[in-house]
Design a protein around this nucleic acid. Structure first.
Lengths: 205, 205
DNA sequence: CCTGAGCCATTTGTATACAATAAACGGGTC
DNA sequence: GACCCGTTTATTGTATACAAATGGCTCAGG
């Protein structure tokens, strides 16, 4: 609901109201709120009331910066640990991306799914449960989720080419190369988001 | 209880048993288990049963590696953002450390408290709620907690000197320097832990 | 018109009961 | 003797009730 924008930033989330809305009791709602709080999608007041987090520009930059650092670390580790099956899976998913964006009207949904799977395999190949745990907190966030919605053809194809580079770096077992590409890959996503956001802002004015 | 070793690694944690032991109902116990699971102190089976996580050597190395990376990033950011009051607080806490370890019998408990406060100020000065959130997951872990218990006088004083270097880097607003020192600081802690652990292992045999 | 105190409404924290599911055990069969 | 299946038991998931704490509102007073 937060990602879909049904719950505007800053609005209060009452456990009971959510329970009613989801047709469950407060108990599972509480569990979900605690998790979302850990993911920083929800902030809690001193008196433990829950509100949808509102993301400042600094927050967004912060999230991308950390994501770049952690994903680069994942790529660095994965380069020397990835196995043949995982490498092949990366190629398959990136081919899926290529197909999804080849049409006149790119299939963003399919792109997102393959993109998610691609990055997930890298995290898995990194073989660090802690790193995986930290990253899942950063990627399930509204900004990241919406970024690709605003990708133009140019950015979609660039993303695909960067994935190809990553596969090449993994195939060569070059940790430094893989980390560098990944850093650039995430930073580019950040600037793509900024551009799209700037457009949205102008449209809103 | 996990940190104190009362609950051995691998042992199952029944919500009801813990509730009885802590004289509360299952509800708050469940909340705690969910948080500890996020902190990777607890792992859950497919059927959602909880067990105390057992840490392999790789897990420990992994945790230190990530902590080094994130704390270095915190130091990097803090260097250009720290204010005079925070800088002074760092000096005060490091002086507290100096006093605590000056005696013939070092006061480890006081050392730990000042050390925790010292690192906390840096994270605060970094001004990144996300980074802070990620780091709290890594520092409340059994290995980190026990490391200082095994510090010898040499390591305690080295830690103090490294803190002094950090303060100097912050005073100069030198982000790269601060990050480098912090990386070394955490890596040294890792090797100190390894040495202490090797000693314990030999004693156990 | 502003301020503050007290009361009421809202919201969260905790306890408990019941339902659903998975593990453990035992009896039977091959 | 090993293995499969049904039953029992343990454990977690969910719903609900009540207690505690917090926010906001009203009304009195300056």
């Amino acid at each position: 609901m937060i990602l879909a924008g049904e719950l505007p930033p800053g609005s209060q989330l009452s456990e009971e109201a959510l329970a009613l809305r989801c047709a469950v009791s407060r108990t599972p709602v509480r569990d979900a709120l605690r998790r979302l709080e850990a993911d920083l999608l929800i902030r809690r007041s001193e008196s433990q009331r829950s509100f949808v987090a509102d993301w400042s520009d600094d927050d967004i930059e912060d999230a991308f910066e950390l994501r770049a650092m952690l994903e680069a670390q994942a790529a660095r580790r994965a380069a020397t640990r990835i196995n043949a099956a995982q490498l092949e899976a990366l190629r398959v998913h990136n081919h899926g991306i290529e197909t999804a964006i080849a049409a006149d009207l790119p299939d963003i949904s399919t792109f997102l799914e393959h993109n998610r799977a691609f990055h997930e395999i890298i995290v898995e190949a990194a073989g660090s449960p802690r790193l995986a745990s930290l990253l899942t907190r950063l990627i399930e966030q509204p900004v990241v989720w919406r970024t690709a919605q605003n990708y133009d053809r140019e950015n979609l194809h660039r993303s695909h080419r960067e994935h190809e580079e990553l596969v090449a770096a993994f195939a060569r077992r070059d940790a430094g190369w893989a980390a560098s590409i990944m850093t650039g890959h995430i930073r580019r996503a950040y600037y793509a988001y900024l551009d799209a956001y700037a457009v949205q802002r102008q449209a809103a004015e």
